[in-house]
């Protein structure tokens, strides 16, 4: 399967916006860094038409080593969840105008 990477995204910025390749790559990095910093601060990131990234707090629970059966505590932690917008869900399913029956 084809994988899109930073290089592809930077190249598209370069062709669409007309900045230099270097600056296009830097700006992509800046965007990813801004998103990461907000999430690191525990903030949600809401990109309309795309989706919402949010940070969820998980409590302590008892896990088990599946190999040995031994009980191990899983400490409280924060995890990142992404909730796709209905627009993105529709695009992925090839339906451009979703029957907007959610939310």
């Amino acid at each position: 399967m084809q994988t899109v990477t930073r290089a592809h995204l930077a190249e598209t910025i370069y062709t669409q916006v007309g900045l230099s390749r270097n600056e296009s790559a830097d700006l992509l990095e800046t965007v990813l860094e801004r998103l990461s910093a907000a999430l690191e601060a525990g903030e949600s990131v809401k990109i309309s038409g795309f989706g919402t990234f949010s940070v969820r707090q998980k409590g302590r629970r008892i896990g088990r080593n599946p190999k040995t059966g031994e009980e191990v505590p899983i400490l409280p932690r924060r995890v990142l969840v992404f909730r796709p917008s209905h627009v993105l869900k529709a695009r992925v399913n090839g339906t451009s105008t979703p029957l907007d029956d959610e939310e």
């Binding site: 084809q2 592809h8 910025i13 669409q16 916006v17 992509l28 965007v31 038409g49 795309f50 993105l88």
Partner: peptide, 13 residues
Amino acid sequence: IVATIFDQITGAL
């Protein structure tokens, strides 16, 4: 720039 990034991700998916 911002639109391009999210549009490209959407298009790929």
